[in-house]
Design a protein around this nucleic acid. Structure first.
Length: 85
DNA sequence: ATAATGACGTGAT
DNA sequence: AATCACGCCATTA
């Protein structure tokens, strides 16, 4: 069975430890598709699995990035709780 | 199969 | 510093 890009991304993000963060571009690169940062976003958007800490994926330009469970504010709060900020 | 979409990235205004 | 414009690419319709 072949793992889609989305599956690899979810796996990678699941592996981000508490207090750590990765940029969309980083995840894409590790997933084997450098330059597909945007696609990582697409995946996150369609991913509703709570086991995937999508809030640990941030933008490369230092911004927080969006979040499908309460927006940027929520995401920022979670990261602060984990000490990622 | 083709077109539209968007939780990005970088460089130019 | 803030915004705009364009390229990028998997996913979705």
């Amino acid at each position: 069975m072949k793992l889609s890009f989305a599956d690899r991304v979810r796996t990678i993000v699941r592996g981000i430890r508490k207090g750590q963060t990765m940029t969309y571009g980083q995840v894409a690169a590790v997933a084997g598709q450098p330059g597909a940062a945007r696609s990582v976003g697409t995946v996150m958007k369609n991913n509703y699995d709570d086991s995937v800490p999508c809030h640990r994926v941030v933008r490369a330009d230092g911004k927080i990035g969006d979040y499908n469970r309460g927006g940027e504010a929520r995401k920022r709060a979670l990261l602060q709780e984990e000490g990622a900020l």
